[in-house]
Every structure is written in C-alpha cells, then in structure tokens.
Simulated scan of single mutants.
Amino acid sequence: MTRPLELIVVEDHDLVREELVDFLMRPSVSVRGADDGEVLEALLRQRHADILIVDLNLPGEDGLSICRRMRHAFPEMGLVMLTARVLPMDKAVGYQHGADIYLTKPANVDELEAAVANLARRIRRRVANGLQLDVPRQQLTLPSGATVGLTLLESRLLYELALAPERKLSTGLLVQRLDPHREVPRMADNLPVTISRLRQKLASEPAGAEIIKAVRGVGYQLTVSVTVRA
C-alpha cells in the first residue's frame, strides 16, 4: 500500500480531538476528526479508514456500540479505544466489543503514536495480502475475490507455513509435517515441484512468484499473511 494511512479520531471534546488530529498527522498519515457516530459514518462514506481512535463517552451512540458495529462491518479495520474508563472490567468489555488496543486517559501521546504505528503494520499486512485459506474446501481466496483451487498437498503446505513462527519452516520439518508417516515416496524431491505449481496458480497476484520463497540453508517462508479456516 502506497496511499496514506487513514485515521479517524472520534472524540466529542473539541480541543482534545483537534490536538490528537494535529499530533498524529504525518505526510504518510491522513487524520480526520468526528464528534459522534453520525459524523463518523459521513466521513466513512467519503473515504474508508484504516484505524479508528474512539472515545467511549460520546453523545448519542456510545463508543462501545460504534466499535461493535465497525468490527462487524469492517473486520479489517483497526480499533483503538481511548477513554477515561480505567477499571479492569471496562477494559475487558472494550476488548469484547472489538478493540484491538485499549488506552486510558489522560493519553500519553507517545504511547498512542507507538500503538497506532504497531497496529498499522498489522492492518497493512492484512489488507494488502488478504489471502484466505479454506482448508476443508482446498481453496484459496485472493484479495480480488477470485478463488484458486488447491490440491490436498498444496492446501496442507500453505496451512503449515501460515501457522509456523515467522511463517517459515525448514525443509526437513516441512516434509515431516506433510508426510509424517512417510507414505509418499520422495516427498523431499516432490516439494519444490509442488511449490512451483502453487506459485504458478498465484501468478496473477502482484507478488505471486514470491508468495513462497526459498530461504537459503533453511527451507521455505510464506511472505504474506494468510487467514486460515480449518
């Protein structure tokens, strides 16, 4: 993604909202402000947002309800709750309503900036590389909405890499997981062929040929995040 990160601050206190908007604005970050849910919806109709920073005590619809709606409507959106509610129970409710991050007021602006930057990295990976693996159906859904049929071995290969630390496995461990009972002869020899065929199926994607890369002296690594439905 080369477009600016899109933030919306939902805060009914005018001075606080304006200060947060000014503080978070960067050449690579676009920040808009809304004082309630209706204004937020109007802004979203104009342009989508990657991350919302939402106060909970708002006029009309409260922040919890807004976050719950946004989480259902835009599951890829980042949600930061910024509120004066400090009890552990309040935090638990916030996360139950879809918050990615729960921060309490008065806000430490450096902590807020770091939290937004960390969340942005996760959101951008998810949005840019929105691959969804349906293991039972042996099917991969691309960001465009197109689907690619997979063989059982291709599906299992993606599954193992998607769930591995750093999405990376040694060749030996990958072969072992794909063929734990050594029922398929020469699995190690067949593995590069399987990966080559899988790359061909994903060739229409911008990074199709590099979605699975060989790591010299190690094995293979999945270079994009994949949401798995097992």
Rank of each mutant, 00 (worst) to 15 (best):
P4K: 12
L142N: 06
R125Q: 15
R177A: 11
R182E: 14
P143F: 09
P185Q: 05
P192F: 07
P75F: 03
K201Q: 02
L174H: 05
R126T: 13
I195P: 07
E6A: 15
L112V: 05
V224G: 07
I195T: 04
D62P: 09
R17M: 01
D55Y: 00
E111K: 13
R124H: 06
L191D: 01
A34C: 04
R45T: 03
Q96C: 13
P165V: 06
L119F: 01
D179N: 11
L157G: 14
A162H: 11
I51Y: 07
K213W: 13
M187W: 05
S196C: 01
Q138V: 01
P180T: 08
R186D: 15
P27H: 12
K168G: 13
Y159K: 13
R216S: 10
L5R: 03
L87T: 14
T194K: 05
G208N: 11
A114F: 03
Q46S: 11
A99C: 09
V29S: 11
P165W: 05
R26G: 06
D134T: 10
R156D: 15
Q176E: 15
Q139R: 15
A107N: 03
D55L: 07
L169K: 04
R47P: 08
M77A: 08
A34T: 01
G60D: 10
Q221C: 06
E19L: 11
L131P: 03
A84H: 10
A128L: 14
A230Y: 06
R156F: 12
R121G: 14
V86R: 14
L161F: 01
L24E: 01
S196I: 02
V54D: 00
N118R: 10
V215D: 08
R47D: 08
C67M: 10
R124V: 06
I8D: 09
E154T: 09
D110T: 14
R229G: 15
R186T: 05
T83S: 00
S204R: 08
A164T: 08
R17Y: 03
T141C: 09
A73Q: 08
D35H: 13
H72M: 02
Q46Y: 05
R45S: 10
D55V: 04
D14A: 13
D14H: 12
D179T: 04
Y159W: 00
R216N: 04
I123E: 02
M89R: 15
L58R: 03
L15G: 09
L163A: 11
R47E: 13
C67T: 09
C67A: 10
H181Q: 13
M89A: 15
D50Y: 01
R85E: 10
G130L: 10
R32A: 00
L24R: 02
L142P: 05
I211A: 10
A92T: 12
G78W: 07
V93F: 01
I8P: 00
R125S: 14
T171I: 10
Y220L: 04
P59E: 12
P27G: 06
D14C: 12
A164V: 07
Q138R: 14
T83F: 05
A84E: 09
T171G: 14
L40M: 02
R199Y: 13
